[in-house]
Design a protein around this nucleic acid. Structure first.
Lengths: 351, 351
DNA sequence: AGGTAGTGTGGGAGCGCTCCCACATGTGAT
DNA sequence: ATCACATGTGGGAGCGCTCCCACACTACCT
């Protein structure tokens, strides 16, 4: 009997070995049953399952992780301060989609914020320790080093919104170009001719694509693109206000505004109000995201809906597939996947 | 050379053994340095640290967890659907406090929602597998079985808001009784005499305590307690509306309302408006939580502030202490701790 | 000189799994 | 009967740590 190394465990949790003894089989067989291997006879499987139930056996994750070199956990990394995470419905919707997909799985989801430098260092450490099998990365800016770190560590990752047209990571995105187009086409159809655009942060690729859509739709409609009607914003309300003020001063004759986000639109709306412009009579307003704020705005805001929850779901599926492909089985260098989901314009009374 | 069990590791991450070889010391010594044991000479420590840096060594968490029987992770369990979590600033503030405290630590925080039955089963499984060293439990109702499960599994836990006066778990709470009192005292000082109360969910102990404070403050002020002025709510806006309607019908002469939460106050405000009562001229209104909504309400809402972020911080500290006390060292059955933090009335124009 | 502490240090044993080789045993084709 | 091959099964080895015992060495007392 080992008087050694028994370290205070007092008949604690049952182990595989104990289940095996109880079921009258070997350790390997129990492991096979637990992991759903088909190479077990029905009778044996039943016996093992009975033993598991009787003993209340629960696998020891640490031991499994050590032996199998995997963690059964993935991380949702948000390279933003927590405040933004809670303020923007984008993130919570995405989380909802991921969570829904995860509930069919044994996988555990970790939510990691990497807004500050300190948090980023922690994250780097965390990833270096391979404490997750894969990473979902949302809201990444063009110059973010995180994707490269992930690649270097050979950690499967899926990104929401490619960093550029040449993105190497698997990505899921909504059709920002099409979304931009549809907003403008809608305004054109409503008879607007002087359509301004307050962009999102231009170091976010999706924001650029919306601008592209805006330009092309205007060209296609036969209106030229007046560069003075384009003003950079940053997705925030304050940014929307500033941009709207600049636009109003520069082009007082504008009759429509396509804002880079609903929050931006809210900022623009305030300035328009203060300037005595009625919405939609004098100026039509279209937002982006179709978040709760759009429905509650006065007047309700026309907005371009992104299927964010679906995006989360798709990201998860792709990540799980990539993780599965790295497992002992064959590593058939998957082609890189870039999934793009359609957007949809939701018309309301602001336009 | 082992041709066996080498399982595809191709000069992967360095191990303790490799660091030891590099530094010219034994495995145990490296472990001691990594874990900050004082029983290492300065020269040896320096040599090991150099080797660690050169090799870029990062401890394998799974191996550590297996050998030491701990996970270096704690969970923040929210027994609510995710939607509520994002909707109520209470949770995000608490998360902020916990996160701040955690950044000084090696501990990892997991956010777990247990709103649905399915999620609760998953959680139970998760806890049974001892995948966390401790649990922070927020927003627990009186009949929740979770605390008992935790106790049975002998997992250290700290609860925000005791379930009753006889709470056995370590808890951190704000002074709900005092908060209730201060709201009423404030209204009395403002000359109000017919003060109604829309309660919170009464299966939440804190909501009961606010009622107690309300009653005692009224008694002390020399006004009796008119039971008809007390109407149960449930912390929601809709509940506030319903309660306010009932109150107005039953006691049209009321001149003040103390609501169980800011959101409830928002609901009450709507009904008061519709009934043609001016705030604060006809009816003074006081909320609870001092959330963002209080500042943005029209008119700005007087509210009782709870130091939620501090509460999160304190909960974390207590949990870490409890975890530390279970470690190999002496287990000196700590006295149960019930921490109560002060609340503060923030007067605004609604009263 | 002989104890008796206290420091550092090395390394064996073991944590509870997964992986995989070895070995049955059971088919069907030759 | 003989070989081939699939199907089940047991158990050794090893994942990378922590814990702790054993054994130096050094002091500092008797």
């Amino acid at each position: 009997m080992a008087t050694h190394g028994t370290r205070g465990r007092s008949g604690g949790r049952p182990t595989l070995e104990e289940v095996a003894a109880r079921a009258g089989v070997g350790r390997g067989t129990v492991s096979r049953v637990i992991n759903g291997s088909p190479r077990v006879s029905d009778a044996t499987r039943a016996a093992v399952e009975a033993a598991v139930a009787e003993l209340g056996y629960v696998p020891n994750t640490a031991a499994r992780a050590l032996a199998a070199n995997r963690t059964d956990a993935i991380a949702l990394v948000v390279p933003e301060p927590e405040t933004r995470f809670f303020a923007e419905p984008y993130f919570s919707d995405m989380l909802k989609g991921v969570g829904a997909g995860l509930s069919d799985t044994e996988m555990q989801l970790l939510l990691i914020f990497a807004g500050s430098d300190r948090e980023r260092r922690r994250l780097a450490q965390y990833l270096a320790a391979h404490r997750v099998d894969g990473v979902l990365l949302v809201s990444v800016h063009a110059d973010d080093p995180l994707p490269d770190l992930l690649a270097q560590l050979e950690i499967p990752a899926v990104i929401s919104g490619p960093r550029s047209a040449a993105e190497t990571l698997t990505s899921v995105d909504s059709d920002n170009y099409g979304g931009g187009r549809s907003a403008v086409e809608h305004l054109v159809a409503r008879g607007r001719t002087r359509i301004a655009h307050i962009t999102g942060r231009l170091d976010v690729y999706g924001a650029q694509r919306r601008v592209d859509g805006y330009r092309d739709a205007l060209s296609d409609a036969g209106y030229g693109v007046d560069e003075r009607l384009i003003e950079p914003g940053d997705f925030t309300e304050e940014g929307g206000r500033r941009a709207m003020e600049a636009l109003l001063e520069r082009c007082p004759d504008l009759d429509a505004v396509f804002a880079g986000s609903d929050v931006t639109a809210a900022g623009a709306r305030q300035v328009l109000r203060e300037a005595g412009r009625r919405i939609p009579d004098d100026v039509a307003l279209v937002g982006y995201d179709d978040s709760a704020i759009a429905r509650h705005m006065d007047p309700p805001l026309t907005s371009v809906r992104q299927p964010i929850e679906d995006m989360g779901r798709r990201m998860l599926d792709l990540l799980l597939a990539e993780i599965a492909d790295r497992r002992p089985s064959v590593s058939r260098g998957l082609e890189r996947r870039q999934v793009v989901l359609a957007t949809e314009l939701v018309p309301r009374t602001s336009s």
